[in-house]
Simulated assay, not measured.
Amino acid sequence: MKQILLFVTIISFHFTVITQSQKDSLNKVVQKRIKDIKQSQSDNPYYTKEEKREGYAKEVTTFQALAQPTEDSDLANYFKIYLEKKLLQNIDFSTIGWSSFYKHPSKNAYSYTIRLTFEISKTNKATNCRINTGNKERDRKIIEIFKKYPLEKLGLKESDKLGKISVQLFAKEDKNVIIKANKFAVVDTPPILKDCENAELYWQINKCLYDKLYEHILKNLSLKTLNNQELRGEVIFNPRFTINEEGKIVHVNSIAPNQIIKDEIDRVIQSFSQVIIPGKRNGNPQNTYCDTYRSLTIENIK
């Protein structure tokens, strides 16, 4: 720990060996603090409603152009063979979405589609598969079926291990839920620091980026500034920023327990000047929204 005016540490949410009751107690504290942060997020939204609407419409248009989903694609025909038709019944599109970020698009803009996202493991298998159809058992069965599909049929490359991959599986048309799946996979690669180019998998890129960023925060926080505010102890904050198409950090707007800590965190993040390869969608640079939780402990030196 760095000892000048205060003890200041930044940690991820992991703990040393402790009892289960201690873990449960710590988890409750963490969840309570995250809940408080989420309330602050609604008080200080990162995007306006108009920006979210425009972003949603642009994302859907881009995805559809790249994925080219049809009812007779190879992936669609595969699901027609192996998925029981009754599983598609009673899907309520009004209660689900393919992105937690775009939770409430307007009815006019809503795409009425369901996507599955996954990553590729070192052994070239689909991993971290996620889908939301409004029913966990149905989600589990769909993922089970998808994992047996030959990924090479999606035209994936070795470099796609660095990305999160999305495929549309279902759509609602004329009040009916149909199987309408990608011809081509859509691959979103996260921003990559040049020091992180040896990363081989999606999660490794993200970990490397955030590790480097928080090393920078730890080294550059103004302990004098933090000492001038009264809050002490462990606090959880929510860094939020965008890495633009040029690989620069922009639009920094974190959530923190008070304005002084927020402004200091924002200032340090904005000063992070390492060269970043921007996030890409199927090879084309795109703006990437970054959002995480971290813990900051501030204590007086005794």
Rank of each mutant, 00 (worst) to 15 (best):
F15E: 13
T16R: 12
T19I: 13
Q20F: 07
Q20L: 14
S21K: 15
Q22S: 13
D24N: 10
D24R: 07
L26G: 02
N27T: 12
V29L: 13
V29E: 13
V29D: 12
V30P: 00
K32M: 06
R33T: 04
I34W: 00
K35S: 15
K35L: 07
K35E: 15
K38T: 02
Q39M: 11
S40M: 12
Q41H: 05
S42V: 12
N44E: 03
N44R: 04
P45W: 15
P45M: 14
Y46K: 02
K52V: 02
R53T: 13
E59P: 01
T62S: 11
F63N: 01
F63A: 00
F63D: 00
F63G: 00
L66K: 10
A67S: 15
A67M: 07
A67H: 01
A67P: 03
A67V: 09
Q68P: 01
Q68M: 12
E71T: 15
E71G: 07
S73G: 13
N77H: 06
Y78D: 05
F79C: 05
I81E: 11
Y82W: 15
Y82N: 11
E84I: 05
L87V: 04
L87T: 05
L87N: 12
N90E: 15
I91Q: 07
D92K: 09
F93Q: 09
F93H: 07
G97V: 03
H104G: 09
S106K: 15
A109E: 15
A109R: 11
A109C: 07
Y110D: 11
Y110P: 00
S111K: 12
Y112K: 14
T113Q: 15
R115M: 06
T117Q: 03
T117I: 12
F118T: 00
F118P: 00
E119H: 06
I120P: 00
I120Q: 01
K122M: 05
T123G: 00
N124D: 12
N124C: 04
T127P: 02
N128M: 04
T133W: 02
N135F: 07
N135Q: 09
N135R: 08
K136Q: 14
R138H: 14
D139S: 03
E144P: 00
F146D: 02
F146M: 14
F146A: 15
K148G: 06
Y149A: 14
K153W: 02
G155T: 08
L156A: 09
